[in-house]
Simulated scan of single mutants.
Amino acid sequence: MININTLDLNLLKVFDAIMDERHISRAAERLCVTQPAVSGMVKRLRQHLDDELFIRTRNGVIPTQRAEELALPIKNLLQQLNIIFNNQSFDPLTAQQQFTFAATDYTQQVILEPFLLKLRQIAPQIKCAVLNLSADQTRLEMSKGNIDFAFMTPEDAPAFAVSKALFKEEYVFAISKSHRLSQQSSISVKEFCEQPQGIVSYDGGSFRTQTDEVLMQLGFKRDVSMSMPSFSSLINLIKKSDITAIIPKKIAEINLDLKTFDLPFEISGFTKLLVWHERTQLSIAHEWIREQIFASCK
Rank of each mutant, 00 (worst) to 15 (best):
A71W: 14
A71L: 02
L72N: 13
L72C: 04
L72M: 14
L72A: 12
I74C: 08
I74E: 06
I74N: 08
I74K: 06
K75S: 05
K75I: 07
N76H: 15
N76D: 13
L77C: 05
Q79S: 02
Q80E: 14
L81I: 10
L81F: 13
L81K: 15
L81Y: 12
L81R: 13
N82S: 14
I84K: 13
F85V: 12
F85E: 10
N86Y: 07
N86T: 06
N86C: 04
N86A: 06
N87L: 09
N87V: 07
N87M: 02
Q88L: 09
Q88T: 14
S89M: 06
S89Y: 13
F90H: 02
F90E: 02
D91A: 01
P92I: 07
L93Q: 09
L93N: 12
A95L: 01
A95I: 04
A95Q: 05
A95N: 05
Q96Y: 07
Q96R: 15
Q98R: 11
F99E: 03
F101Y: 12
F101L: 00
F101M: 03
A102F: 10
A102W: 12
T104P: 01
D105K: 09
Y106I: 13
Y106F: 15
T107R: 08
T107Q: 10
T107K: 04
T107V: 11
Q108T: 13
Q108Y: 14
Q108G: 11
Q109G: 05
Q109E: 13
Q109T: 12
V110N: 06
I111C: 12
P114N: 04
P114V: 04
P114K: 08
F115E: 05
F115Y: 09
F115I: 06
L116H: 06
L116S: 00
K118F: 03
L119V: 10
R120N: 11
R120Y: 13
R120Q: 14
R120M: 08
R120L: 04
Q121Y: 05
I122F: 07
I122L: 04
A123Q: 01
A123C: 06
P124D: 01
P124Y: 09
P124R: 10
Q125F: 12
I126W: 05
K127P: 00
K127N: 05
C128D: 03
C128I: 12
A129M: 10
A129I: 15
V130M: 09
L131F: 15
L133S: 03
S134W: 11
A135V: 08
D136R: 08
Q137V: 03
Q137S: 02
T138L: 01
T138G: 00
R139C: 01
R139Y: 04
R139D: 04
L140F: 11
S143K: 03
S143W: 03
S143Q: 09
K144E: 09
G145D: 03
